[in-house]
Amino acid sequence: MKPYWRLTTLALLILFAAIVLPRPSAAQLDPWEFEVYPYQTLGRGMIELESLNGVVAKGHGSGDHGTSAGALPSQSMWRTAFELTYGLTDRIETAAYVNLAKPSGHDLQYAGAKFRLRGSLFDQGQLPIDLGWYIELESHRVPEFDDQKLELELRPIIQKDFGSFSVMLNPIFEKVLDGPDRHKGFEFGYAAGIYYRWMRTLSPGLEFYGGVGNIRHPDPSKEQQHYIFPVIRGALSHGIEYNIGAGFGLTPGSDPVIVKFNLELEKFLGAIFGPSSGSGSFF
């Protein structure tokens, strides 16, 4: 084994342990978006409309528990986000989201909005591990669902392909900019996935989501949220792709069962910029 592979393996193990091992605390995860980001961004000039859907099949009966960060209980909560993404360059995409929710016994309601930029560094396969970045602003303004008004989210994106397997890690660092917790530091969460490329139309995977709360003062482990989602995903005709799965909460603070169904449609709209240089790293 070459020395750099030993280093890479060691670093990955440390990183994985730092992300996944239980710690005394609870977490930040976005219940509107159970999605692990890969290194690859949307193609230059392409537009994608995505519908991210989730329902808490078995949750908590009171607010501020499980995936509920507001007054409404998570039990039977439907969440839908519509995401519109555009591929600015070969390495950078931009996206806007509208979050909607339908609490049990209530109508579908506006729950917030998000804007983000995501990018990949270097060309895919140029480095032993593919790296990307992600920056997001999330506005809630609807305290029934989340009493924090404005949040900043940063994610490094790490991906490594092993033959037909892809491993993706998204450590999540979130900071409240406006809201009751604005004086607190960063919170930490994660999204991660292992996927097997079986068929274009159907491939299995395993996804992990969770959070530990504030980095300096993590929540008690029983209050943290950690989920494991067996998923299937694939591409259908006419640019349609899907990702379906059932998530199982691993701690008392998690919702016991969440079902997700993500559907996306990709089309080429037209590129603003030319192809990225192979010798470049950012644009």
């Binding site: 890479t8 670093a11 990955l12 440390i14 990183l15 730092a18 480095l127 591990i129 790296l131 790490i158």
Partner: peptide
């Protein structure tokens, strides 16, 4: 440090 090691390795 893990990220730094990763970056240097890359």
């Amino acid at each position: 440090p893990a990220l730094i090691v990763l970056t240097m390795t890359m």
